[in-house]
């Protein structure tokens, strides 16, 4: 079966890969491109561990076909930190202990960054509803929410 050739941009870098028509972006990122920071928790769009941005918009990569991203811009957790500097969301998650096992963390980082780019001054309620698609079973969310609110404060400063 002839595979599809996809040329795209991942974290600003031109990237090419081959995939089947049914392959999801999540599987292409993890298995074909080697970016395993994006996690699979459910593959049905219910947990948010696979969150990435597609042309700047937050999506679940498990619900995007790899073939669709041809000519588009994909952003993953691997592209969030800038060389040696963490993004404020990442830094604040560390400072507030907003992660325990860490499996949901890449998705939380990508989603929270997308939120703060849209809304630099979200309320606790805003953050909770924005992150409702990012399941975390370890933290009870408390420290994640605090970290995101603190990151927002820092980014506004």
């Amino acid at each position: 079966m002839a595979k599809l050739h996809v040329e795209t941009s991942v974290n600003g870098e031109p990237t090419e890969f081959l995939c089947e028509p049914h392959t999801t972006l999540l599987d292409a990122l993890r298995n074909d491109i080697g970016l395993t920071g994006t996690k699979e928790g459910c593959a049905t769009g219910d947990c948010g561990a696979c969150s990435v941005t597609l042309n700047g918009r937050l999506v679940c990569s498990c619900l995007v076909l790899a073939a669709e991203v041809s000519g588009q811009e994909v952003g993953t957790v691997e592209g969030v930190a800038d060389a040696e500097t963490l993004h404020p969301v990442q830094q604040k998650l560390l400072e507030h202990a907003g992660l325990q096992c860490g499996i949901c963390t890449p998705g939380v980082v990508v989603a929270a960054k997308a939120l703060l780019e849209r809304d630099p001054n979200p309320s606790e309620r805003d953050v909770r509803f924005w992150l409702a698609g990012n399941l975390c079973r370890c933290t009870g969310y408390d420290k994640i929410i605090r970290a995101v609110l603190d990151a927002a404060t820092e980014m506004r400063a």
Binding site: G45, G48, L54, L58, V59, C60, L63
Partner: peptide, 9 residues
């Protein structure tokens, strides 16, 4: 209709 992630699509 779904989470923010779903809303994007």
């Amino acid at each position: 209709i779904g989470s923010e992630q779903i809303q994007g699509r």
